[in-house]
Design a protein around this nucleic acid. Structure first.
Lengths: 98, 98
DNA sequence: CAGAATCCTATGTGATACTG
DNA sequence: CAGTATCACATAGGATTCTG
């Protein structure tokens, strides 16, 4: 329980998961979809998700730039129903106080 | 989404909800069931839950001491399936790294 | 018995500049 | 393009003491 909330309770993590759930994305695409999240935070939370095997990363070096693609792992996907039900519950029950 | 995680992402909150889900409890009973949580934290998180209408509090003054009973509201109960599924997911998928 | 107030520390978060 | 490093700040969490 504590471990679960220590993951999805972190800032930007649910947003990242929802964004990656739509489709795998390169780092830059993620960054522009979640513009309010700083680059450092985004990388930091992605690393957290990588360490916990919720997300998979594939790097390829084409010409002279780097391409880093992130996608949900099967474990990450297994969490999505919960994330989505949290979102729905919040929309139905919480005003925008906090 | 953010609002939801700002509630259940807080320390002790899921534990409190699960404990109250079993049955309504007086403050002292809660405190002893969740012994590791300091009194201040317990009160603080209970107030957070009260403000967000997840929990109901009833105070009565008998002899010369105060009795303060906490229980889940209907909104709090509506969140329990999610909390429990988070707990199950964590038990199934997370080692005890974090 | 419940709860509030105070203080202190750890951690999360954010802006910015730097590297390969 | 991705990722790292440094610094600086805000907030969460905990120990303790006080009040009705």
């Amino acid at each position: 329980m504590e471990a679960t909330t220590s993951l999805i309770g972190r800032k930007w993590v649910p947003t990242i998961l929802l964004t990656l759930d739509a489709s795998p994305k390169r780092f830059g695409a993620l960054k522009s979809e979640i513009a309010d999240c700083s680059k450092k935070m985004l990388i930091q939370q992605l690393n957290l998700l990588l360490e916990n095997n919720l997300v998979i990363n594939i790097k390829t070096v084409d010409n002279n730039s780097t391409e880093s693609t992130y996608m949900l792992s099967s474990m990450g996907q297994s969490l999505m129903p919960i994330v989505k039900s949290m979102r729905n519950w919040g929309n139905n029950n919480l005003a925008c106080e906090r």
